[in-house]
Simulated scan of single mutants.
Amino acid sequence: MFHKILVALDRSKYGEKILDTAIALAKAMGSGLMLLHVLSSEDEGYPVMPSLTTLEYYPVDSALFESYQKLWQTYQKEGLELLKTYTEKATAAGVQTEFSQNSGNPGRTICEMAQIWGADLIVIGRRGHSGLNELILGSVSNYVLHHAHCSVLTVQGQTLANLDTEQGQ
C-alpha cells in the first residue's frame, strides 16, 4: 500500500521513536524510506545570528561572523551525522533508505520533498504543544496534515499525561 515513506526528523528526543515507527511500517510493507531533516530555527540547537540590537553595541566584525559560520557548519554537520546514523539503523533492519537535509520552513519543506520524491506516506512527530504554545510556536505536524499531497502518520511525542506518569504523579 505504501511504497515510499518520507520520515521527517528533527533533533528532538523523539526522533528515535519516529524512526522506529517508520522502520516497522517499511518492513511490514516492503517500503523504502527517505529520512528528511530540515535545518530550521524551530529545530533544537539552531545557531542564532546576533540580533540587530546586539549589533548596535557590537559592530559586525569578521570574528563575530566567522564564529556564527562555525556554529552553522557544526549544526549542519550534526544534522548529517544524525541522518547517517538513522540511515545505518534502517538499512541494518533491511529497509532501503536514503536521506536528505534541506533548509527552510519545516512544514513547507516536508510537503515539497514528499511531492518531489513521490512519497505515499509521511511519518512525522508531534510534540504535543497545545493552546498558547501551539499558537506561538506553530505546529509543523498540523501544517503537514493540511498541506501534504499524501497520507500522514503522526507519532505522538511528549504529552502532559506522559509527563505526569513519568514524574510519578
Rank of each mutant, 00 (worst) to 15 (best):
A93N: 06
L82Q: 14
T159M: 07
S31C: 09
E88D: 14
G15P: 02
T165P: 00
A24E: 12
E44Q: 15
R126L: 09
A114G: 12
C150T: 07
Y68A: 03
Q169V: 11
T85E: 12
Y58D: 02
S12G: 13
G131R: 15
L36P: 04
L36N: 03
L135P: 01
H149P: 02
Q156V: 03
A28S: 15
I124N: 01
S139M: 06
H129N: 10
G125F: 10
S40L: 04
D43W: 08
P106G: 03
I122P: 00
H146R: 14
L64E: 02
K17M: 10
Y57S: 11
Q69A: 07
E16Q: 15
P106S: 08
I110R: 02
G79A: 08
L137S: 05
S130L: 06
I136D: 00
L35N: 08
H147P: 00
A8Q: 04
L160T: 14
S51K: 10
L6F: 01
L163W: 14
E16P: 00
G45N: 03
V140R: 10
G79V: 08
A24M: 08
Q101M: 13
Q167F: 15
G30N: 11
D61M: 02
L35D: 07
D164V: 06
G104N: 10
K17N: 08
K70W: 02
T109Y: 08
V60Y: 11
G79T: 05
M49Q: 04
S103E: 13
A93F: 06
V95Y: 07
G94K: 13
E66R: 14
R126A: 15
T53E: 14
C111Y: 05
S31I: 07
Y86M: 13
G104H: 10
Y57R: 09
S41G: 11
E56P: 00
I116G: 03
S103K: 14
L55K: 11
V123Q: 01
L121Y: 06
E112I: 01
I110Q: 04
T85W: 00
Q156Y: 02
S40C: 06
T87C: 10
I18F: 11
T53P: 00
E66V: 01
L55F: 08
G79F: 03
S141P: 05
L64C: 02
G30Y: 12
Q115R: 12
P59C: 05
E98C: 11
G32V: 04
Y57I: 04
M113L: 08
Q167V: 15
L55M: 15
Y75C: 04
L19G: 05
Y58P: 01
A114F: 01
E98F: 04
V60C: 03
T21W: 04
V144P: 04
Q167W: 10
A93C: 08
N102C: 06
L33A: 01
A26H: 08
